[in-house]
C-alpha cells in the first residue's frame, strides 16, 4: 500500500477500525484492496495513454486531471512506480519509437515528426544524449548492419545454435 507521510492518501477520512469481524474484514479491504486496484488502475491508465498517444502533443496536466490527481501528486506517484516523471517517460517512449523507425530506415526528419517532436534539433539533441549517437549516424549504422546481415546472415547467429538446431541443413 502506498503511504504518504504514513497516511493512505486515498482515504479521505481516517476511520477507526470497526469491531464486528465482517466490518473489520471490509475495513481491511478498504485499506488494502481499494488503493491497490483503483489507485494503480488510474496510474496505469495514464501510462497506457502516453504509450498510445506519444505522437500527439500531450498535455500532462490533462493526464493528471483524467487520472483524478493533482498535478504534483500525480507526478510523484507516477515516478514512484515508473522511476521517471510522466514527462521523462513520454520522452523515453518517443525515443524508443524513434529507434524502431530509424532501424526500419525512416529518414530522420520523418522520424522526428512521427514520434511527436516539432523540432528536429530538439529531437536530435535528445536522441544523441540518450543513445550517444546522432539520429543520422544511428540510421546509417542500422542500414549498414541490415545490409551485412542480408549478405551473410549466418555470421549473426551463434554457430552452436545454427548447427545444433539443424538450420544449416535446410
Amino acid at each position: 500500500m502506498i503511504l504518504v507521510n504514513g497516511q493512505n492518501p486515498l482515504l479521505l477520512v481516517n476511520i477507526p477500525p470497526p469491531e464486528m469481524p465482517v466490518l473489520q474484514y471490509l475495513y481491511g479491504m478498504m485499506q488494502e484492496q481499494y488503493p491497490k486496484i483503483y489507485f494503480y488502475r488510474r496510474l496505469v491508465q495514464a501510462k497506457l495513454f502516453i504509450d498510445t498517444h506519444y505522437a500527439e502533443s500531450i498535455d500532462l496536466d490533462n493526464i493528471a486531471n483524467e487520472a483524478c490527481f493533482s498535478k504534483f501528486h500525480f507526478i510523484r506517484q507516477f515516478k514512484s512506480i515508473y522511476r521517471k516523471t510522466p514527462h521523462q517517460y513520454l520522452i523515453a517512449v518517443r525515443m524508443e519509437k524513434a529507434r524502431e523507425l530509424l532501424k526500419k530506415g525512416h529518414p530522420v526528419t520523418d522520424t522526428c515528426y512521427a514520434v511527436g517532436f516539432e523540432s528536429v534539433s530538439t529531437f536530435s539533441g535528445l536522441f544523441k544524449r540518450l543513445t550517444g549517437l546522432s539520429p543520422s549516424l544511428y540510421l546509417a549504422q542500422q542500414q549498414q548492419l541490415k545490409e551485412r546481415i542480408r549478405q551473410s546472415p549466418f555470421s549473426y547467429v551463434p554457430g552452436c545454435f545454427a548447427h545444433q538446431k539443424g538450420w544449416l541443413q535446410e
Binding site: K36, Y40, R41, L43, V44, Q45, K47, L48, S80, I81, Y82, R83
Partner: peptide
Amino acid sequence: HDIYATYEEMSA
C-alpha cells in the same frame, strides 16, 4: 519495481 502496476498494465 512495482508489481501491482505491472500486473494492471500487462492485464490491460
